[in-house]
């Protein structure tokens, strides 16, 4: 509940403040957002499995974001930023899908 509340507050803050992304952050933000989404779904799934742990969620969330941004950064430095971004998005997308499937099994029993 508090998590949903936090999400709503964040969305509202983003809508109200309308900040512009700094140029240096622009390549990393989308990947970071996807990674965070992945962590969020993972947390939701763990919650439904009854094994949710705040600490694990925090750590996985932050590490997901940092590692994703790091990969993109590294890829940019190596000149394969676009490809690596695609790879990260694909992997995260697959994970989000599998997590969503698990959540669906829990919620809908199907």
């Amino acid at each position: 509940m508090i998590a949903v509340l936090g999400l709503i507050i964040g969305v509202v803050a983003g809508l109200v403040l309308e900040p512009t992304v700094p140029t240096s952050l622009q390549p990393y933000l989308p990947i970071a957002v996807v990674a965070a989404l992945d962590a969020l779904f993972g947390g939701l799934r763990a919650m439904l499995d009854g094994i949710f742990n705040d600490r694990v969620f925090l750590v996985s969330f932050l590490s997901n974001v940092v590692v994703a941004a790091l990969i993109v950064f590294l890829g940019d430095q190596l000149g394969v930023g676009t490809q690596l971004s695609t790879a990260v998005v694909v992997v995260l997308g697959i994970r989000i899908f599998s997590n969503a499937a698990a959540i669906r099994r829990h919620v809908l029993k199907a």
């Binding site: 508090i2 998590a3 949903v4 509340l5 936090g6 999400l7 709503i8 507050i9 964040g10 969305v11 803050a13 983003g14 809508l15 900040p19 992304v21 933000l29 989308p30 970071a32 957002v33 965070a36 989404l37 969020l40 947390g43 705040d54 969620f57 925090l58 969330f61 932050l62």
Partner: peptide, 16 residues
């Protein structure tokens, strides 16, 4: 902290 992270995510999502 969970709420904070979620807020951060929502914020970043909207910004992006």
């Amino acid at each position: 902290f969970v709420a904070l992270l979620c807020a951060l995510l929502g914020f970043a999502l909207v910004v992006q």
